[in-house]
């Protein structure tokens, strides 16, 4: 039972990272209808920037994180301004395909700047510190990850629901033309969406690269691993992204521990595939996810 609880916390921590990435997907999908395949590269770039600011430039940790978030916001807005804005009004799958290649460019850029070696992510707390609550042990990093995800996504939800800016963003997500007609600066808001998505990705990357993992170029693959979270939650719902992300984290951690050993050789690394199998099965039953809306199609 203790072990189950410990695994659950580890799963939730991983799930929190997935949720951050998934919310990034959802932001872009809701506002412009395209799936941002470059989200994982935002995480990689963010993690490496953080190592630069915190370990190399020796800035205080919170300042470094803030700087990372701001730089990534600029990167996201820049990509929207230079590339994605030119694709406005074209079929969404064209834009989605383009993001794949934007991701390629970012990954090569990271490789060029930082090389293929791994870097440790500095933390202001002792990275191996263990917290014990009622016999259940888990690392402090896991706890902080979960808290940060809750605070960030909560703030984002508040901004989206309660502020004029959030309202305008939701209007853009609803109907770009109508929003435009109302005098909402659609393009600027789309840029902002990309900026927020990129900085969410960066925060996810920073926490993903913490001990026992480290910042590597291969982190970009992570976004592809987060897809089941977005799908299970539905592409349009931030709440869905959180539930989907947590479910994915739990599935992977519990799957690795409880399912893999029963499959013999086949089980090595099976937990990573398990999520995709569950996702595919899930899509067969609910093609629009838990919280997605069914599109009405005009012929």
């Amino acid at each position: 039972m203790t072990q189950f609880a410990e695994l659950t916390i580890a799963g939730l921590a991983l799930g929190a990272i997935y949720s951050l990435i998934a919310v990034g997907f959802v932001m872009v999908y809701r506002s412009s209808g395209l799936l941002n395949f470059a989200q994982g590269e935002f995480a990689t770039l963010g993690a490496f920037l953080m190592t630069t600011f915190a370990a190399w430039a020796v800035l205080p940790w919170p300042v470094a994180l803030l700087l990372t978030v701001l730089v990534m916001m600029a990167v996201g807005m820049g990509i929207e301004r230079v590339i994605m804005r030119k694709l406005l009004g074209r079929p969404p799958f064209i834009g989605s395909i383009v993001t794949i290649f934007v991701g390629f460019l970012l990954s090569v850029a990271v490789l060029w700047i930082y090389g293929s070696s791994t870097r440790a992510m500095p933390t202001p707390w002792d990275p191996v510190k263990i917290v014990e609550v009622g016999g259940v042990e888990f690392t402090l990093t896991n706890l902080v990850t979960i808290l940060v995800a809750i605070v960030l996504i909560g703030t984002l939800a508040f901004v989206m629901q309660r502020t004029p800016m959030g309202m305008a963003m939701r209007a853009v997500a609803d109907d770009q033309e109508a929003a435009f007609a109302l005098g909402i600066p659609v393009e600027r808001l789309l840029g902002l969406t990309w900026g927020i998505a990129a900085s969410l990705g960066a925060v996810a990357g920073v926490f993903l690269a913490m001990f026992p993992r480290s910042a590597t170029v291969a982190m970009g693959l992570l976004a592809f691993r987060a897809f089941p979270a977005v799908i299970i939650g539905g592409l349009e719902s931030p709440v869905g992204a959180i539930i989907g992300g947590s479910a994915l984290g739990l599935l992977q951690v519990h799957g690795e521990y409880y399912v893999n050993p029963h499959l013999g050789d086949f089980g090595i690394g099976f937990h990573l595939v398990l999520a995709f199998i569950v996702m595919i099965a899930f899509l067969m039953i609910k093609p629009h996810g838990l919280f997605g809306t069914k599109e009405l199609e005009r012929v």
């Binding site: 897809f227 977005v230 592409l235 595939v273 199998i277």
Partner: peptide
């Protein structure tokens, strides 16, 4: 895109 993601999952599987 949903189909694209499923086929993407199939690569991993």
């Amino acid at each position: 895109l949903y189909l694209a993601i499923v086929t993407l999952g199939l690569v991993f599987v």
